[in-house]
């Protein structure tokens, strides 16, 4: 990835120097260490990375680590609300479709799922903006996390809804929630079909197991079987695919944050990509990939914890 980003076609020095003379190009090249061989630059980058130094962004002119630290809470808050919303709706819908397999309810649920997977997140965000901001005037303007007139609550976690609650600031809480509403609905719409389709497929699998037949033969009400035994056992498989949902989340956040000008990591990555900001692009890729691998690794471990069958 390091080598890839260094082959970016645009020349960042020209962006920086404006009208560049040969000397100023050389000067900046030396400042940034770009005149040295690529391998030397690579090892230097790796040394810095090991110390937690991700380099400096030349768009914001600040250390990338500080940029990411400031922007991460905004993305996390959005992701939490979006994921919660999608789980809240997706799990019951998927279960319902599985229990009523091949009935009208199932077909409708599957059509909703297919529609959801097919809807481009950025477009849905724009349509929501048109309806709720322009037509109904319910939603605040899509710029930032708080209205300008509202004072920011004291920084504790960086999650504005949580911070404002901790500070007892009702106005800021309502305002932050209002700003969160449309982006998180958009993000949820990206994740919901994934959750729903997965729940349905897993549930159908589980409902065909022998122990479900046994339970039914014992005369336990079907509703109770579904809500206890079947749900418990499908949760195991659903858990393992959290990594998949996370991948959708990352891709979705770049697009959704762009639409709503949400000051998170996704928008930062977008700016870095369009401005040839090597350090910032690399940092974004390293951070997201590491998180992605970590998420998958943790779910693998959890899988072993909750499912005794695969423990060896």
């Amino acid at each position: 990835m390091f080598f890839l980003t260094h082959f970016l076609p645009g020349n960042p020095i020209l962006v920086r120097a404006g009208v560049a003379t040969a000397e100023s190009v050389e000067l900046i090249e030396r400042q940034l260490g770009l005149d040295r061989p690529l391998s030397e630059q690579y090892f230097e980058y790796m040394r810095n990375l090991a110390r937690g130094d991700l380099g400096k962004s030349w768009v914001t002119n600040r250390p990338v680590r500080d940029d990411l630290r400031d922007r991460l809470p905004a993305s996390i808050e959005l992701a939490v609300y979006g994921t919660a919303l999608s789980l809240l709706l997706g799990l019951p819908l998927g279960m319902l479709a599985a229990v009523k397999q091949d009935t009208l309810i199932d077909h409708v649920a599957r059509l909703i799922g297919a529609l959801g997977v097919s809807t481009p997140a950025f477009w849905l965000g724009l349509v929501l903006l048109y309806v709720f901001f322009f037509l109904l005037k319910w939603a605040p303007a899509p710029w930032g996390r708080l209205s300008v007139a509202v004072a920011e609550p004291p920084l504790v976690t960086g999650l504005l809804t949580l911070d404002s609650l901790l500070a007892g600031n009702r106005e800021a809480f309502a305002n932050a929630l209002g700003h969160l509403a449309l982006p998180s609905i958009t993000l949820a719409a990206v994740e919901l079909p994934v959750v729903m389709r997965l729940t349905r497929a897993t549930m159908i699998d589980v409902l065909q197991q022998d122990y479900i037949t046994t339970a039914r033969a014992l005369g336990i009400p079907y509703r109770r079987i579904v809500l206890t035994d079947a749900l418990q056992n499908s949760m195991i498989s659903i858990l393992t695919v959290t990594g998949l949902i996370f991948a959708f989340l990352i891709a979705g956040s770049v697009l959704v944050e762009r639409v709503f000008s949400w000051p998170g990591v996704g928008l930062y990555a977008y700016r870095a990509l369009t401005n040839n900001d090597f350090a910032a692009i690399q940092a974004f890729i390293i951070v997201t990939t590491l998180t992605y691998i970590l998420v998958n690794w943790v779910t693998d471990i959890l899988y072993g914890v909750v499912d005794p069958r695969i423990r060896t």
Binding site: L273, N276, I285
Partner: peptide
């Protein structure tokens, strides 16, 4: 993640 990979490759 696939989209991220494509994003970087096209940017590069």
């Amino acid at each position: 993640p696939g989209f991220l990979l494509a994003l970087t490759v096209t940017a590069v």
